[in-house]
């Protein structure tokens, strides 16, 4: 059995995390362009007064897409081990749940 030293595991810097196929700089650039376009779209939509309440789902969808692009490509969740996604998304979904629960408790979704 290979000798197993605790010090090897602690604070180690070198264990490769086995994400082999990293995207190229071109992909990163494309993502950046997409992020900018989506932000631009958010601002354009913002000035469409006729949208009224419709702005809420539009902004929500656009931001979620931006959010997803960054965590999938820039933070490599798309390529990395699923454990990382699990750990992060647990916190993220609970966070979203708490926000909506508090909004509901403070009367955001009451009729009228």
């Amino acid at each position: 059995m290979a000798m197993q030293n605790i010090n090897k595991a602690s604070d180690s810097t070198k264990v490769d995390t086995s994400h082999s196929e990293h995207p190229s700089a071109v992909t990163y650039f494309k993502v950046a362009v997409a992020l900018c376009l989506l932000t631009g779209l958010e601002v354009v939509v913002f000035f469409f007064e006729w949208l009224s309440y419709g702005i809420i789902p539009v902004l929500a969808v656009l931001s979620v897409v931006k959010f997803a692009l960054v965590i999938m490509f820039y933070m490599h969740l798309k390529y990395d081990h699923r454990l990382f996604s699990t750990l992060f998304l647990t916190g993220l979904f609970l966070a979203i749940g708490v926000i909506f629960a508090l909004m509901a408790l403070f009367g955001w979704f009451n009729a009228g």
Binding site: Q4, N5, I6, A9, S10, D11
Partner: peptide, 9 residues
Amino acid sequence: GARDVAFPR
């Protein structure tokens, strides 16, 4: 079955 925690310090 470990010799310490992941981050002893």
